[in-house]
Design a protein around this nucleic acid. Structure first.
Lengths: 232, 232
DNA sequence: TAGATATATTGATATATGTCATTATCTTTG
DNA sequence: CAAAGATAATGACATATATCAATATATCTA
C-alpha cells in the first residue's frame, strides 16, 4: 500500500490496526477523519518540542519516532521508540496543554494529527473509548516504572541489555534487526555517555552475546543477555 | 476533628478537600460512601504490595504514605510521599489489575478504600469525573518525567537538593520541617546509597545551606539549593 | 571521486559513587 | 535504668562511569 492509497482510505483503513479506535462507531470515526491532518516527516525532523503547546493527539501510521526528555547540558533521555500504528500520548493533554517531552522522526514517517477538542469530546461521549484510552495511558505508565528501575538500579551492562531486548521485542520484533538509532541514541536510551554505550556493546560482542556490524544487530545469546538484564 | 466524627461524616465531609470528587452529585458520592472501607495503618505498616492484585482505589485522609518500586537487591525507589487528601493511583487499575509499586505508611495513617467496580462505573457514567481523573493521572505522569531527569541526569548534590525542595514544597509545605523519613528513605528517593545521602547532607550543612538536627530540617539558603538543583 | 563533515571507536585519565568496616547516636524494651 | 537493637555518621578503599583526546570509519556534498 503506497502513501496515496493510505491517505484516501483514511481512518477506516487504519481502524483495524489502531486498537483504541476500534470501539468508535462509524459516525465518531468520521468525525476524527474529518479533523485529521496527515503529515509526512523526514528522518531527523522534529515532530513536536518539549515546552511548546500540545494541540493535537498524534497517531503514527508509518516510520519510527523517538520520544525524549530534554534535560540539562544538552543531554536527552529517550523514553520510547514508537512504531506504527501507535499513539504518542503526552500527559499535557489533560493537564497544562503543553508538551513534556519532544518527538523526532528517526525514519521517514507519517503521522495523523487530531485536534484535541474533537478527541476530548469523544472521550467524554464514549466511555469505551475513555476506558481504552486510560488503558493505553496506564500501560505507558507501567513501562515507565520498569524504565525507572532499569535506569536507577542497574549498572551499564544491565541497561544496555534492556535496550537491546526492548529493540528486539518491542520495536523491531525480529532478531537480527537493523536500527536507524545512532550510538548516541542508544546511550540516551540507557542514560550513559555514548563512549560507555559503545564499550559495553563491544564487551557483549567480545563475549559472543551479540553480533554488531554497523547498525545491524543480532542477539546471539538471548538467555545470557536476559540474565545480564536481571542481575543488573 | 477526631477520627470518630471523621468517620460519621464520611465522604461528604471529605468532599471539599478531595478535588476529583467535587464533580460527583450526591447520589454518586453516596454510592462511594456505601462501598467505602476506612482503614487505619500504623507507621511502618504496608498498605499494599507490588505484585499483588489491585482491587481498590485508595484515598488517604490522614497521615503520610510513601509509594515505592521494589527493585533488585532489596533496593527501593521511592516515587512519592502522599499526604491527605490525596489518592494513590496505580496504573494497574486500567491495565492488569496488579500493583506496580508498594505503599507503606510512614506515619499513622487513615485511608479509604473504594472498590474498583464502583469507581470504574462512575468513570464511565460521569465524564467530568473521568476528566478529573485523567487530569490527576496526567499530573502524576508529568511529575514522573521530572523525576526521570533528576535521577538520571543530575549528580548526587542535585538529587538531594530536589528531594529537600520536594519535601519543603510538596509534602510538608513549611520550611523548618520535621520528617519521619529515615536517611535510607532519603537515599531511596534520590537513587543513591544511604551513606552518600548522609555525606551530601553534611556537605550542605557545612556550607550553611541547610540545618539538620536529627529529623528536623531547615533550608537556610533556598536560592543556593535551587541553583544546585538546576546545575545538577 | 575527493574533500569535508559527522559518527564511531579506542585508550588514558579523572571523578563520582558504592561498599565495607567502625564508631556514634538514638530508640526501644525488659 | 541498662542492655539491646536500630539508625546515623564517618573514613578508607574499590569501582563504575564520565571526560578528554586521538584516531578510525562512515556519510554527505561539491
Amino acid at each position: 500500500m503506497n502513501q496515496h492509497t493510505q491517505y484516501i482510505k483514511g481512518c477506516n483503513a487504519c481502524k483495524d490496526r489502531a486498537d483504541i479506535f476500534s470501539c468508535l462507531c462509524q459516525t465518531e470515526l468520521d468525525q476524527i477523519d474529518e479533523k485529521r491532518i496527515e503529515v509526512h516527516f523526514k528522518a531527523g525532523e522534529l515532530i513536536f518540542k518539549q515546552g511548546t503547546p500540545n494541540m493535537h493527539f498524534l497517531c503514527l501510521t508509518q516510520g519510527k519516532v523517538k520520544t525524549y526528555i530534554e534535560g540539562y547540558n544538552d543531554k536527552n533521555l529517550i523514553l520510547s521508540i514508537v512504531k506504527p500504528v501507535e499513539y504518542i500520548l503526552g500527559p499535557g493533554i489533560y493537564a497544562d496543554q503543553m508538551h513534556h517531552f519532544s518527538a523526532m522522526a528517526i525514519e521517514d514517517s507519517v503521522a495523523c494529527l487530531v485536534d484535541l477538542v474533537t478527541f476530548k469530546s469523544l472521550i467524554r461521549r464514549n466511555p469505551d473509548f475513555a476506558e481504552d484510552f486510560l488503558r493505553k495511558v496506564s500501560l505507558q505508565s507501567i513501562y515507565n516504572y520498569e524504565l525507572f528501575i532499569s535506569l536507577t538500579q542497574k549498572q551499564m551492562p544491565g541497561r544496555i541489555a534492556d535496550v537491546l531486548l526492548y529493540l528486539k521485542d518491542k520495536v523491531y520484533e525480529s532478531n537480527p534487526f537493523r536500527t536507524s538509532l545512532s550510538r548516541q541514541d542508544l546511550a540516551d536510551m540507557s542514560g550513559m555517555s555514548k563512549e560507555s554505550a559503545i564499550r559495553i556493546l563491544r564487551e557483549f560482542k567480545d563475549e559472543g552475546i551479540i553480533q554488531v556490524i554497523g547498525n545491524d544487530f543480532e542477539i546471539l545469546n538471548i538467555e545470557h543477555l536476559s540474565k545480564i538484564s536481571q542481575t543488573g
